[in-house]
């Protein structure tokens, strides 16, 4: 069934939002598709070429950046607001990390200004006094494997009645004390876990890729497993080190 199948991945503004090695997530999605004989076309929407075709997108990825760069991207994406809302409501897959996560909400209130968000999620973010920094271990309801990563954010994100990505087993999460991290909404996965999130979380990566495959190919029933020995050891190492038996 893998004949000529392919997914179109669009990386939004990697030239502006690529603070913490976000490209690792793109590489991970691409490789895990290729290893299964599925094509992956990665295209970028950049500050010098805004002509993305959301119609053809199967996965949209938006990463994190400094406040200055994030504000620039916000201004650019507001022009595509309705397109993006339609994409998400229609079941399009969107992965948003760190600053990208904050962008999906109604606004991000910094100490000095209020940055208007895309309003795709019914959430908002206030700047906190200090940055929440450190390793994170989450338990998601999507699968058994823990989600592990690293957070570094000043924003406190209030997700209202949205479903979180996971329960915080170790680390700080959305607000520092809510006990939850990220948001899962339709086919949107939004999280503060930045940078190389997907390589160490093969279950999460395959969940995201699976959502896109299901939407595009009606007869898609699931992926064949890959040799994830190294991925799983790397994941388990973080779980054991930070959330192991005390």
């Amino acid at each position: 069934m893998s004949d000529n199948r392919e997914l179109n991945i669009i990386h939004l503004y990697p030239d502006l939002l690529n603070l913490y090695g976000d490209r690792g997530n793109i590489a991970c999605m691409q490789k895990r598709l290729n290893w299964r004989g599925i094509g992956a076309n990665v295209s970028t929407c950049t500050n010098s070429d805004h002509s993305i075709n959301l119609e053809a997108a199967d996965i949209i990825f938006v990463g994190g950046g400094s406040d200055r760069e994030q504000e620039l991207v916000c201004g650019l994406l507001l022009k595509k607001k309705q397109e993006l809302v339609d994409y998400v409501e229609g079941g399009g897959v969107l992965v948003a990390v760190c600053g990208g996560y904050q962008l999906l909400g109604k606004y991000y209130q910094t100490a000095s200004s209020k940055i208007e968000g895309l309003g795709i999620l019914d959430i908002y973010t206030d700047a906190g006094d200090d940055r929440l920094i450190g390793n994170v271990v989450l338990q998601s309801e999507l699968f058994d494997q823990k989600i592990v990563g690293f957070e570094n954010h000043a924003g406190r994100t209030f997700i209202g009645s949205h479903t979180p990505l996971g329960k915080v087993v170790y680390g700080r999460g959305n607000t520092g004390d809510s006990g939850y991290e990220g948001v899962v909404y339709k086919n949107v996965v939004a999280t503060y876990l930045h940078g190389p999130l997907l390589p160490k979380n093969p279950m999460l990566c395959d969940y995201i890729l699976g959502c896109a495959m299901k939407k595009k190919y009606e007869d898609f029933t699931g992926f064949e497993p890959l040799n994830d020995e190294l991925e799983n050891v790397a994941n388990k190492y973080i779980e054991d080190r930070f959330a192991g038996e005390k």
Partner: peptide, 9 residues
């Protein structure tokens, strides 16, 4: 630095 994300850069 506790964060090794930079390895991907």
């Amino acid at each position: 630095g506790r964060d090794v994300s930079w390895l991907w850069d």
